[in-house]
Write a protein that binds this DNA or RNA. Structure first.
Length: 218
DNA sequence: CGCCAGGGCCATA
DNA sequence: TATGGCCATGGC
């Protein structure tokens, strides 16, 4: 599976630096990670604008759950997500809303704590670990599964197994994981979703996708 | 009008 | 372990 490293080179050459996550602070990353669950990022952007005056944990904690829900309405599932954000805040409060205090804990401990929060699953937890805390954790999302399924014809249902496939063939660096995941999203938007079966794919012969290759959501 | 987007939880078998 | 229902808005 040197394919993993070669794909990275190809995508990097084709798309360049992606400088993810699109947010102005680690806390904004955490909020965005919840808001973007099964939701188009364009819908999340409106919510972030509505939250401009409460994009710090202290300020957001002042909002009632109902007020919060109304402000994040355009991200969909707003009642669920407001409750999830409140739970995430409750967890963060144990560290005094202090990222530096949080950063003293080992990655595995933080991941376990995040996954224990109702409404924070693997992708959301890992997005926070990688993009807010800079930990070397590879994020798997729908795009990642879609690209890989189209590359190999295999359906990936095991999150951790697919993540391990990437980490086993890459230097254990947050910067690489960050860029790679962003590249997969960018590539999927430009090719796998809008131009399936095109003949201009930057992945070239590595992409064996054919229309006969059905791939599933999971 | 229908489909789906940078998920996750819960009930059921 | 693996499906199915549910949550909900906005863009196309």
């Amino acid at each position: 599976m040197q394919m993993i490293a070669k794909m990275y080179q190809r995508l990097n050459a084709a798309y360049g630096d992606q400088h993810w996550w699109p947010a102005e602070s680690p806390f904004e990353v955490m909020v965005g990670a919840v808001l973007t669950q099964n939701t188009a990022w364009t819908n999340v952007e409106k919510c972030i604008r509505n939250l401009q005056d409460c994009l710090t944990p202290h300020a957001m904690a002042q909002l009632s759950q109902e007020e919060l829900a109304q402000r994040i309405r355009s991200s969909g599932y707003y009642n669920q997500k407001a409750a999830r954000l409140k739970r995430l805040l409750a967890w963060f409060s144990k560290y005094g809303y202090d990222l530096a205090a949080c950063a003293q804990r080992p990655t595995e401990v933080l991941r376990t704590e995040l996954l224990a929060i109702n409404g924070i699953g693997k992708e959301t937890a890992d997005s926070i670990l990688l993009y807010a805390l800079g930990r070397p954790v590879f994020v798997i999302d729908a795009y990642t599964k879609r690209v890989m399924s189209r590359m190999t014809g295999v359906t990936y249902s095991d999150y951790d197994a697919l993540a391990a496939l990437f980490t086993a063939h890459l230097p254990r660096e947050a910067g690489v994981y960050n860029q790679y995941h962003a590249l997969l999203v960018q590539h999927c938007k430009q090719h796998c979703t809008t131009k399936p079966n095109c003949d201009c794919c930057p992945l070239g012969e590595f992409c064996t996708y054919r229309k006969a290759n059905k791939y599933s959501k999971k």
